[in-house]
């Protein structure tokens, strides 16, 4: 009935990816090259995450896909459908019920458990890339821990703007060794990178896999006089009232009025189901 192998990829490709994942876990934050395959979705649309998920899934898994924190964004829907079709796995929108969560640009608000795996889609895995476009150079910089350039860049921000002007994909130092790009998550999510779950990062077009084992020390780069600050919109969710979640800003009418809602749609839904209400909850659910 199913004309493709379980989880689409052939076994040899999965073995190659699995070997890369194991080395990535053994050297946290180091980008392991892997022979990324052409997937039936475009490069830049989650092919790295999809290949990592395909190599990690078992038929017993419950799979969740989010994009911008939401399960119902079109690309999340498309990737979820792909695995329903090719791996026959159960899918869910509930963070707590998922065993593998593939994500683009967010870490779920709910604390992840030890039996969960978070798979990130990564566009540009190299944190030094925008300072130095050459792979041959950045590879050398990592091998020698030459991270001064990154600190110079961040410090230039401070002298120019009075603050570090990186708001997402904020670089981190992993286990006191490698500087790593946490993928374009908002820096609000950075403190969550130290978690109980295994985190795997897949960059398909750039052919790299990297990983954070549970409880790995992850430090957002900063300066003593300018400590790292995980910021978000200074509002509560207008639907569920949450004050601790990352918010999307939505323009609600022609007059440019705004409302703020949780980017993590499952977190917002579960809070509302538990009876929490935001300022506009009545209208929102009407």
């Amino acid at each position: 009935m199913n004309e493709y192998n379980f989880a689409y990829l052939d076994e040899q490709t999965k073995r190659m990816i699995r070997r890369a994942i194991l080395k990535a876990l053994a050297v946290p934050g180091y980008q392991v090259p892997f022979a990324s395959r052409e997937m039936p979705m475009p490069y830049g649309w989650g092919t790295g995450g999809v290949q990592v998920s395909a190599a990690t899934l078992t038929p017993d898994d419950v799979f969740k896909v989010i994009d911008q924190g939401a399960d119902d964004t079109t690309n999340a829907v498309s990737i979820r459908k792909f695995f329903e079709k090719t791996a026959g796995v159960a899918t869910t929108e509930e963070t707590g019920k998922a065993t593998i969560i593939q994500t683009r640009h967010r870490i779920p608000e709910a604390r992840l458990r030890a039996d969960q795996i978070l798979v990130y889609q990564v566009p540009i895995p190299e944190p030094l890339r925008f300072l130095e476009p050459r792979e041959t150079e950045t590879r050398k910089m990592h091998s020698l821990q030459e991270y001064g350039l990154m600190h110079v860049k961040l410090y230039e921000d401070i002298s120019q703007h009075g603050a570090i002007s990186t708001a997402y994909a904020y670089p981190v130092r992993v286990a006191d060794r490698y500087v790593m790009d946490p993928s374009p998550i908002p820096k609000f999510d950075n403190p969550k990178l130290e978690m109980d779950a295994i985190q795997l990062f897949g960059a398909g077009r750039e052919q790299r896999i990297y990983a954070l084992p549970p409880h790995t020390r992850v430090v957002s780069l900063d300066f003593e006089d300018y400590p790292f600050e995980a910021s978000k919109a200074d509002h509560a969710c207008n639907l569920c009232g949450a004050e601790d979640s990352y918010l999307d800003e939505v323009i609600t009418d022609d007059a440019g009025n705004r409302m703020f809602v949780c980017s993590d749609t499952d977190y917002c839904r579960s809070r509302r189901e538990a009876g929490h209400q935001g300022r506009l909850a009545q209208e929102g659910t009407a």
Partner: peptide, 17 residues
């Protein structure tokens, strides 16, 4: 083409930050 066209995917979380 994949990477070029991926910028039409939603980026509102990053934009918000």
């Amino acid at each position: 083409t994949g990477f070029l066209e991926h910028i039409k995917l939603p980026h509102y979380v990053d934009f918000q930050s």
